[in-house]
């Protein structure tokens, strides 16, 4: 009897897991400000003076309580960026981002920390550069839900 070579068994499976995430008192204050008033608040460490975003209760470097709240402007500077060509899925919604799209790291004026978000420019290297000034654009207030998706993107500031 001829021996038939068997393909090894390999079974595809999917796991989907529901989560609920508690933002905590500091981030809640920041996100409610963003949602209800279109403001962005960071905290400043009393010791090292780093202005930290998202706001957190303890400064990781100094191990002291952050107590001073600082309102940031909505403008900043692009520190790094990429043009993404992969059809990445947004893990928070399960919906695909639409490539190619540009996202980057922005340091808001007055902040030590940075924020990663979409940059509203064409995926064209002539139109993007590190050091470019940009402004945060929010969703209309009625559509905001209290997370970073309330920020639509950063618009480049001409000049």
């Amino acid at each position: 009897m001829a021996t038939k070579i068997q393909e090894p068994i390999s079974i595809p499976m999917t796991v989907s897991v529901p989560y609920r995430f508690a933002a905590g008192s500091y981030l809640t204050k920041c996100l409610i400000g963003l949602r209800d008033h279109g403001t962005l608040f960071a905290v400043e460490c009393p010791k090292c003076k780093r202005v930290q975003l998202p706001p957190r209760i303890v400064c990781a470097t100094c191990h002291v309580r952050n107590e001073r709240w600082v309102e940031l402007g909505l403008e900043g500077t692009l520190v790094a960026f990429t043009i993404m060509y992969l059809p990445l899925t947004d893990p928070t919604t399960g919906k695909p981002h639409n490539p190619p799209f540009v996202y980057g790291t922005v340091r808001l004026d007055g902040a030590t920390s940075v924020l990663d978000h979409f940059i509203n420019v064409e995926p064209d290297l002539e139109k993007i550069r590190v050091g470019m000034r940009c402004r945060m654009i929010l969703r209309p207030q009625a559509e905001r839900i209290g997370d970073l998706s309330d920020i639509l993107y950063f618009d480049p500031i001409p000049g």
Partner: peptide
């Protein structure tokens, strides 16, 4: 989850 995950992956 609320600060960066939407662009992660």
């Amino acid at each position: 989850p609320l600060w960066g995950r939407s662009l992660a992956g």
